[in-house]
Design a protein around this nucleic acid. Structure first.
Lengths: 234, 234
DNA sequence: CATTTTTAGTGATTTAGATCATCGTTAAGT
DNA sequence: ACTTAACGATGATCTAAATCACTAAAAATG
C-alpha cells in the first residue's frame, strides 16, 4: 500500500485535487485548502479502504481503479451496495449522517484514491454553494440508484437480476458490450443478492441461449435487446 | 382534496413555512421568498401525492399525517420504499437527480403537506449554506436507511424482517410500544418485501409466542428484547 | 340497511433458489 | 516447482415463502 501525504513543502501545489468533475466548482484557494486535508493512496486488490463501525473520518474519491462498497450481515453473508469507479465518491453518506462508517469498502482492482478528511470537505461545503449543490445532486442519484436496487431485490428473480447486473457492467462500469470483469463470481453474486452457484448457473443459461458470450472473466453481450427484456420482465 | 394557494395578497405572510426543523436555517427574507412557491395541501387516505414518471416539479414536506413512498414493478407488485411522517421530506432525491419522479407517493392517512416548487428550493440552496448542509445531512441519512433496508431484503428472512418492521413502527413511526397502524396488512407487507399472507402468518406466530399483542390494527410489543434478537439473527 | 368491495385470515400446493457435496482448474504462497 | 488455497462449475436435495384457493369479517357504497 503506497502512501503519499501532502506536507508543508508542497502546500503551494494543487496537484492532488483533480481538475475535472465536481472539483471544477472549487476556486484555486479552495483547492489549496482542500489539499491540506487530502491523502493520495494506492490500494491493491482486496485492500480494505474503510471498515464498517470505524469512525468515519474520511471521504473517498476514486481516481482510477474500482472499489466495492459492501455490508456484512449475519454469518459470512455479504451484500455489495455499489461499485465506485473513477470520478465517484464513497463514504459520503456515512460522513454526513453518522460518525461511523455504515459499511465497508475494499479495492476490487488496483485503485488510486483521494482520502479527503471530512472536516475539510465540510469547510468547502459551508462556503461554496455550487459545490454543495452538486454534492446534493450526487446524493440524490445515489438514493435513486439504491431505491432501484431495492425494487430489483424485492421483485425480480434471478434472470432479471443477472440481466440488471450485465446492464450495470456494460452501461455504467465498463461502458462497453465486451468487458473483462475484475470481480469473482462470488463478488458478482453479492452485487445482486444471490449465491455464486445461482449466479454461475444463470450466466451459463444466458450463454446457452446465446444472450452472452462467456469465457472466464471475459463477457460479451450478444443481445442487448434480450438483456433489456429480461431486466424488464424481472 | 382541499387546496390553499398563497397568492399576492398574502405575500407578507410567512405562515406556510414552519418555524421548526430544517426551516430554522432560513432567514425571514428566504421564508417569504420560499412561500411564493409553496402550496399547502390536504390529502385523504389513498390520495395520490405524486406519480412515478411524471415531471418532478415539487418537493413534499409533511406537516401532519403519514405518507408512503413506493415503487411499482412488474405486474401489480409494489414495494414501499419509506414512510414519511411530520417533518420529513419526500421527492427530494427525484427533484435533484432527475426531472421525473422516480417513485410514487400517496397518503396513508389524512395528511397535510407543503408542496414546494423545486426551483424555489434550489434558489435557497444556492444562497444558504447551512440549509444546504442540512439537506445533505438528510440525504445522507436517507442513503443509510435505504442501504440498511437493502441489506435486510437480501439477507434476512421473514421473522427478521417482521421484527424490523415492528421496530420501525415503534421506534421511528409511532414512537411507542403500543400503536394503531393506519396501514393495511398488504401495505405492511410491501414495506418489507413480502406478501400479505406471509406477513399475517408471521405476525400471528409472534402473537402466539407472546412477543406481541395483536388485535386488528392495534399492535403492542410485549418484548422489545425478543424483537431485537429476531431482528439481529435475521 | 342491504349490498358490494376491500381486508384479514387459513390451509394446501408449488417453486425458485439456497444449501450441501464434490471436483477440476486456476492462482497464490512457500 | 510444489503445495495449498481460492475459484469455477455441476448435480442432488431441501426449504422458506410465494402462489392459489377459499372463508370470514370489516368497510365502503348506494
Amino acid at each position: 500500500m503506497v502512501h503519499f501525504s501532502l506536507n508543508s513543502e508542497y502546500n503551494n501545489s494543487q496537484n492532488l485535487i483533480p481538475d475535472d468533475g465536481i472539483f471544477n466548482y472549487l476556486t484555486g484557494d479552495e483547492k489549496i485548502k482542500l489539499s491540506l486535508g487530502v491523502t493520495l493512496m494506492t490500494f491493491e486488490r482486496q485492500d480494505m479502504i474503510y471498515k464498517q463501525n470505524m469512525p468515519s473520518d474520511h471521504v473517498v474519491y476514486v481516481i482510477s481503479g474500482l472499489i466495492k462498497v459492501y455490508s456484512g450481515g449475519r454469518g459470512d453473508r455479504v451484500i455489495c451496495i455499489k461499485l465506485a469507479g473513477p470520478g465517484s465518491f464513497a463514504a459520503l453518506s456515512s460522513a454526513y449522517a453518522s460518525n461511523l462508517y455504515m459499511n465497508s469498502a475494499a479495492a476490487i482492482e488496483q485503485t488510486v484514491a483521494l482520502m479527503i478528511r471530512k472536516e475539510n470537505l465540510s469547510d468547502i461545503l459551508k462556503q461554496n454553494n455550487m459545490f454543495s449543490l452538486s454534492i446534493i445532486n450526487l446524493m440524490g442519484k445515489e438514493i435513486l440508484d439504491i431505491s432501484k436496487k431495492l425494487v430489483t431485490f424485492s421483485m425480480k428473480q434471478l434472470p432479471g437480476r443477472v440481466a440488471d447486473l450485465l446492464r450495470y457492467f456494460s452501461e455504467e462500469v465498463f461502458k462497453s458490450n465486451e468487458f473483462t470483469v475484475s470481480l469473482t463470481r462470488q463478488e458478482m453474486a453479492e452485487l445482486i443478492g444471490t449465491t455464486k452457484e445461482s449466479l454461475i448457473r444463470t450466466l451459463n443459461e444466458f450463454k446457452n441461449d446465446r444472450i452472452i458470450d462467456l469465457d472466464g472473466k471475459n463477457i460479451k453481450i450478444l443481445s442487448n435487446d434480450l438483456i433489456k427484456v429480461l431486466s424488464e420482465i424481472g
